[in-house]
Simulated scan of single mutants.
Amino acid sequence: MEEAVRLEAVSKRYGSGRSAVTVLGPVDLCFTRGSFTAVMGPSGSGKSTLLQCAAGLDRPSAGRVVLDGTDISSLGETARTAHRRRATGFVFQAYNLLPSLTAEQNIALPLRLDGRRPARGEIRRALERVGLADRAGSRPGELSGGQQQRVAVARALVTRPAVLFADEPTGALDLATGRELLRDLRDLVETPGQQGLGTVVMVTHDPQVAAFADRVVFLADGLVAGELHRPAPEAVAARMAALGGARGRAVPEAARC
């Protein structure tokens, strides 16, 4: 199957010499188009670092990242940023909405940063997609946490990215709102023609959330420690519990698409 993202021997280190700390890798992983993958692991296992390197938000210390057909590891900062803006959407746990802008203006921001003027009705359709057509003029402080997260999702989708990356997208949401958001993401994978989106990569700590994905990849001590396909929440929870006795043991099969 066609790959949306491939990581080849990717690692991330901080510091230098004897004080250097490796927080990720080396990791080999790929994510195919039309897939929904959850990334799980204990605190400090490298989940967010993996997501940021895969999305081009951070540059690996070593290895190669191919994002939507382009080796972003070989690009300069300006070119990498431009490709990331076109190819990806990113949903942050903390929303990262600008408080002085309305929902409509926050959603339009990625297009404007890329030098594009939103087409007539484009932002309105994005708001309708996440059920907030009547809150276009509301600022973040006038919205609930769930509504702010939906604005963040609409903002991530408005550029019609090849890949949506989400870091703990339900972490600050109540159960009902979180499940509704996950169903939205599930729909976006299954009906990619509506937004040009076919791939979701999501970091989560919650087995119930991970079970919405087609595939769950586990990390431990910065290394791939196995994967499950279409698992029940109980199977995810059991694997997470088992990681305490198997940390750092990478499973080569997990690199396969």
Rank of each mutant, 00 (worst) to 15 (best):
A126N: 02
V203N: 03
D187N: 03
R116S: 10
V23C: 00
Q194A: 15
Y14W: 12
Q147C: 10
G146R: 10
M202Y: 06
L50Y: 08
T159G: 10
R116M: 09
G46H: 07
G46V: 09
V236D: 10
G44N: 10
T159M: 11
D187W: 03
Q149R: 01
Q93K: 02
G171L: 01
G115F: 03
D221I: 00
A238P: 14
C53N: 13
P161Y: 03
D184P: 00
L182K: 04
F218E: 04
G196S: 13
D174E: 12
V21L: 14
A94V: 02
R13K: 11
V203S: 06
G69A: 06
L219N: 03
L127S: 03
G146E: 09
M40I: 07
D187R: 01
F212D: 06
G89D: 01
N106I: 02
E8L: 04
F31H: 05
T191C: 05
S45R: 05
G137N: 15
V130K: 02
P233A: 10
V163T: 08
K47E: 13
F31Y: 09
S144W: 03
R86I: 08
L164I: 12
V209F: 08
A62N: 09
R179G: 15
E234V: 12
D167R: 12
I123Y: 07
K12P: 13
S61L: 13
T70E: 01
A235L: 15
V10F: 11
T102M: 11
D214R: 06
P118V: 09
A162T: 13
R256F: 04
G131N: 02
E168R: 04
R85Y: 09
R59I: 10
G46M: 14
V224L: 15
V189G: 02
E2I: 00
A54R: 11
L24R: 04
L50E: 08
G178S: 11
P207Y: 11
L67G: 11
S19L: 14
D71F: 02
R33Y: 09
V216A: 02
L109R: 07
V39M: 11
A133M: 00
R6Q: 12
V5H: 00
A254P: 00
G244E: 09
A82E: 12
A55V: 09
N96Y: 08
D134Q: 14
T170W: 11
E227M: 12
A166F: 00
V10N: 09
P42C: 09
S61T: 15
R125F: 06
